[in-house]
Design a protein around this nucleic acid. Structure first.
Lengths: 237, 237
DNA sequence: TGTTGCGTTATTGTTGACAATATTGCCCTG
DNA sequence: CAGGGCAATATTGTCAACAATAACGCAACA
């Protein structure tokens, strides 16, 4: 109704960004009719959309109850990062051993955009680009299956990072966020150097270190139960 | 209409078995209405079903054209087995390092059923159980993400095995099939021994060898083009 | 006052009819 | 007789009304 770009993929991305940017908080209920009139889509489309989001584990689809944006647990977070280390180490090994000049250029261009996003303080864009850097590595490594797995867990990772990094005090956190952004970007930079230079083992190690670094920045305590959520926790069974 | 067990999961499995057992040949078109009246389901359900099957890459969903049972290429096959080696090596490493008696028993029971299926010549059941053995390892290893990945590629592997093992002469092939069945089962047996005995490195190596063995049995030539399929190959773009 | 049961409302799930699209067969023309 | 376009048909895609279900509030009772 309001926005012209209301095809399925676009709306999917808009919702995804809203989730990652914490405009839609974890646990929020997504009513079909609300989404339907917000984006000017029929309820049928909204249903497809929610189904896709649930496949990617960004929303939780509870039968006869509704769709809720996902609240990945610390255990899930750790599990996901472990899987990422395994898969991305392999992908980066593959790419580093056969990276062409053209591929190097593509990675460089991407990194440039990442850098711009940080400078211009576009947090949401930055998170997306940061994820897409990893996806680009997968794509260039030419391993469709492993790359498709990455497509499934990187959005979840983004949600996890958003969830577990900035929940404490305001000023201090903002500082650490900025720090983290720059760190991540410089690590991507180092990674690119190793890949382009065909330093296979080094590239693999840098990737693992990078992922460890991201995970280490998170505050993955067992999570103090919020009473509001209890209801849904039992409903989820 | 005919069968009582017409819930979504059951029908899904029946179709999957039909595909793996080569009752539905790769490239076959699956018309919504046909399926709908065959299983006594509404077209809406059939649609969901086909969507699920396409997520698992067992059917190819071409917009405005229909659903076709997938024809994984030799390249896809190799890619899938490479991914399996990576993931399952990790899962078996995890499980072997902390396998309890109870878990050992579960694996043993499963293997027993596999053995029975071979003895009774139930080829289709055997293929399913063989896949489920690997899934059980994943489940027991307690790595949800990696295990969910396995759930995505093992059905595809089954389809690939069905596709690329028995397309040549009849008697000779049948012999090799039987041979392969027994081999696979005995390899599962050895694997179980290493896992239960907490011989981590040996278990990992056995798993990799086992997967290599399966892949090696396949006839993954570049595949002589069948004229019938050409149409669809171009439509798939 | 707290709790249990019931009726109302709001939301999701399903179906069947209709629209859009592709496929097929036929006829007309060169 | 071959080829291209057009009409007929078959199949998929979409939507809107209806059914089923769960959430909510109110009232009655302990």
């Amino acid at each position: 109704m309001n926005n012209k770009t209301n095809d399925l993929d676009t709306v999917y991305q808009r919702i995804w960004e809203a989730i990652v940017a914490h405009k839609l908080l974890p646990g929020t209920r997504l009513k079909e009719e609300d989404l339907s009139e917000t984006f000017g889509l029929s309820r049928g489309f909204v249903r497809k959309l929610l189904l896709q989001l649930s496949y990617h584990k960004l929303v939780n689809l509870v039968p006869n109850s509704g769709a809720f944006v996902a609240e990945p647990s610390p255990e899930e977070a750790r599990d996901i990062f472990q899987a990422r280390r395994l898969i991305e180490a392999e992908l980066v090994r593959e790419l580093a051993s056969k990276c062409t000049v053209r591929e190097k250029k593509l990675l460089q261009e991407h990194l440039e955009r990442e850098h711009q996003a940080i400078e211009q303080g576009e947090q949401s864009l930055r998170i997306r680009l940061s994820g897409e850097f990893h996806l680009l590595i997968g794509k260039l490594a030419n391993k469709p299956v492993l790359t498709s797995f990455l497509h499934e867990i990187i959005p979840r990772s983004s949600l996890i990072v958003a969830l577990y990094q900035g929940t404490s005090t305001s000023t201090g956190t903002r500082k650490s966020k900025a720090h983290h952004s720059g760190l991540s970007c410089s690590e991507h930079n180092a990674l690119l150097g190793a890949i382009a230079g065909h330093h296979v083992d080094k590239a693999v190690q840098l990737m693992i270190d990078h992922l460890n670094e991201i995970e280490a920045q998170l505050q993955l305590e067992p999570a103090a139960e919020e009473d509001v959520n209890l209801k849904r926790i039992f409903a989820e069974i």
